[in-house]
């Protein structure tokens, strides 16, 4: 969609240039300024000085890698994962906790297991702001996700892909809904979806290297991709006790 918008805008610019053969220099500068303020145009030179526009992930190494220094606001983020239990929830929990503290609603759509309340409270999540949805069937799932994203009432929507793979146009609709509702959309999808293109603003592949969570950045809007980062698990969990005997 972004490329299409770009194309349209370029076309308009070209038309303007044709219709007005000798525009004053000030007016010519304006479209350029407009173009530069567009979020989907990547400026390498000024990239360093940019302030945080995203929602902090809570991990400094990851923040540094992302253009907005955090999860991209009002956009879809895809986390590709094959094996549960490698720290995928711990990755997003700091952001969820921060948003619930700010009074925003967090919606989990179709979580694979029971979200365990004591662990969530330990992570700082306010349970009153947490809503768990179990829609039946693919259509209802997409409907519920789109409605929640659009409503503007919810801060984060975390969605787990069911058995069926959503079509490209559905993913696009979710991305647009997240943009309209200014909502962070986190979509957990199986690793097999890596090859298919997706409109998400950020795609991360999650794997375990045995000890740590290994992230591979596949795609990032307005930013570099291809980096890898390793995040250590909570030391309380991986501390190895001395064997009793």
């Amino acid at each position: 969609m972004n490329s299409a918008e770009n194309f349209l805008q370029n076309k308009q610019l070209a038309k303007q240039a044709n219709n007005e053969p000798a525009p004053p220099s000030q007016e010519q500068a304006q479209p350029l300024q407009q173009l530069l303020t567009r979020p989907d145009i990547w400026q390498l030179a000024s990239g360093h000085g940019r302030s945080r526009t995203g929602i902090s992930t809570g991990y400094r190494g990851l923040d540094a890698m992302l253009t907005g220094h955090g999860w991209p606001r009002a956009a879809s983020t895809e986390l590709l994962i094959d094996k549960a239990g490698i720290g995928e929830m711990s990755l997003i929990l700091p952001a969820l906790a921060e948003l619930t503290r700010q009074g925003q609603m967090v919606i989990l759509v179709n979580p694979p297991l029971i979200p365990y309340a004591p662990a969530l409270v330990q992570a700082g999540v306010q349970l009153e702001k947490l809503l768990v949805l179990h829609p039946r069937g693919q259509r209802d799932q997409l409907w519920a996700a789109e409605q929640s994203l659009q409503s503007g009432a919810c801060g984060v929507l975390v969605q787990w892909q069911g058995k069926e793979t959503p079509a490209d146009k559905d993913l696009r609709r979710l991305q647009v809904a997240a943009r309209d509702g200014d909502c962070l959309h986190v979509h957990f999808r199986p690793g097999s979806c890596v090859k298919t293109p997706s409109p998400a603003a950020l795609r991360l592949q999650l794997k375990s290297d045995g000890e740590q969570l290994a992230l591979h950045l596949f795609k990032q809007l307005n930013g570099k991709s291809g980096q890898r980062v390793h995040l250590a698990r909570n030391p309380d969990l991986v501390r190895r006790d001395q064997p009793l005997h």
């Binding site: 969530l120 809503l131 768990v132 039946r136 519920a144 919810c154």
Partner: peptide, 18 residues
Amino acid sequence: QLIDKLKARLGHQALSGV
């Protein structure tokens, strides 16, 4: 409003908190 809407379409049992 969102909760009401979700409830109307998905049914009462599809929504929960913890």
